[in-house]
């Protein structure tokens, strides 16, 4: 791979960035965030959580409320409009120029920068090859599939060697199979280029697969910042736990160093009182029979997913639990089951 494909890893810092719309609605509460150089950071959350607003603040398409600052490296870019920030943007709707060919689209940023014709052609050629688009150079945009269009959009954003690559739900418009393959391609690309990337999505699978760190957002606030493993295994609160993956809730009571959940009791070193506990479906296992510390219940639903069977188990009291078990399980609705819980896998969440 040529050296020109390795891009500078510029850190990005947001300091006290909030955003209030002219009508008075608050889109983003004051946010402080340091994105390391070369890092891929994913903003994850439901629609309206402020993730796209944050991306647009970094891009320069919106400006923060007075007092907020956006820094690229040591440079304060808060007052710079997007056209002077040198960022690359990729949109959900591709936003390719319909009046230009694939090659002209990719060349556009270089043309605006007055790069000479010869160098332009060379760099566009290199970039098209990198994105496996060489044979489509002369095509019109409406002759391409969705996946090809998004690869053109990536090439167009990257060919100008931006300081930061900003991706706004780039895979949302694609069908599931294409989404997976393009996600792998984007991952490979971001690792190869070493560019600082900000990726916005509502899809937790994408976030887990791509992000060095994930910023989970809700109602204009950051709920948690962490690596995918931290977010998954140590969710900061109930919202994060529910938003990422499937999470079971157990209501129990601690007394005398033991935790009582329904008729079950486990050793649990904590102050006495009621607790709310969370556990992942894969951290519950089917037990052979009744024993001390096993939860019991009846199968309310068994969904065969191929590689595994997902059971919904209803305990005699308390909410239903989701449990993953082997794909070849022959349990059916109404069967009595016992569940083994590893106390180490239980999460107490505020």
């Amino acid at each position: 791979m040529p050296d020109s494909f390795h891009l500078d890893a510029v850190p990005v810092r947001l300091e006290g960035c909030s955003k209030t719309w002219p009508g008075g609605a608050r889109a983003l509460e004051p946010l402080d965030l340091a994105i390391h150089g070369g890092e891929t950071i994913v903003f994850l959350g439901p629609s309206g959580c402020g993730k796209t607003t944050t991306l647009r603040l970094i891009a320069g398409l919106e400006s923060p409320d007075p007092g907020g600052r956006v820094l690229f490296g040591d440079e304060d870019v808060t007052a710079l409009p997007i056209e002077r920030r040198n960022v690359g943007m990729v949109f959900q709707s591709y936003a390719l120029f319909p009046n230009m060919t694939v090659a002209e689209n990719v060349a556009y940023g270089l043309k605006v920068r007055k790069v000479s014709r010869g160098e332009r052609a060379a760099r566009v050629g290199e970039m098209l090859d990198l994105m496996h688009l060489g044979e489509f150079a002369g095509r019109r945009i409406d002759q391409l599939s969705g996946g090809q269009r998004q690869r053109v959009a990536l090439a167009r954003a990257l060919v100008v060697r931006p300081r930061v690559l900003l991706l706004d739900e780039p895979l949302t418009a694609l069908d599931a199979k294409l989404r997976d393959s393009l996600r792998l391609e984007i991952d490979r690309l971001l690792r190869t280029l070493g560019i600082t990337a900000v990726y916005v999505t509502h899809d937790q699978g994408e976030a887990m697969a791509l992000g060095d760190r994930i910023v989970v957002m809700a109602r204009g606030r950051v709920a948690q910042v962490g690596t995918p493993r931290e977010i998954y295994y140590q969710p900061a609160d109930g919202f994060v736990a529910d938003f990422i993956g499937t999470m079971n809730r157990l209501s129990g009571r601690v007394g005398g160093g033991r935790l009582a959940v329904g008729r079950t009791s486990l050793p649990w070193p904590a102050p006495d009182g009621p607790v709310e506990l969370l556990v992942r479906p894969e951290d519950l296992a089917l037990a052979d029979g009744e024993a001390d510390g096993h939860l019991d219940g009846r199968v309310a639903a068994a969904v065969f997913l191929g590689d595994r069977t997902r059971l919904v188990v209803e305990p005699p009291d308390g909410p239903a639990l989701t449990v993953d078990t082997a794909g070849r399980s022959d349990l059916a609705r109404g069967d009595r089951v016992w569940l083994r819980v590893d106390p180490a896998r239980l999460l107490a969440v505020p």
Binding site: L61, P81, E83, S93
Partner: peptide
């Protein structure tokens, strides 16, 4: 007009007059 097209052109460094000439007028 798709506002994303103009934003894409601007992100690539196009000043307002270029956005008008390359994106808005062709559309």
């Amino acid at each position: 007009l798709d506002p994303r097209l103009e934003e894409a052109a601007r992100s690539l460094g196009a000043p307002p007059w270029r956005v008008a000439a390359d994106v808005i007028l062709p559309a």
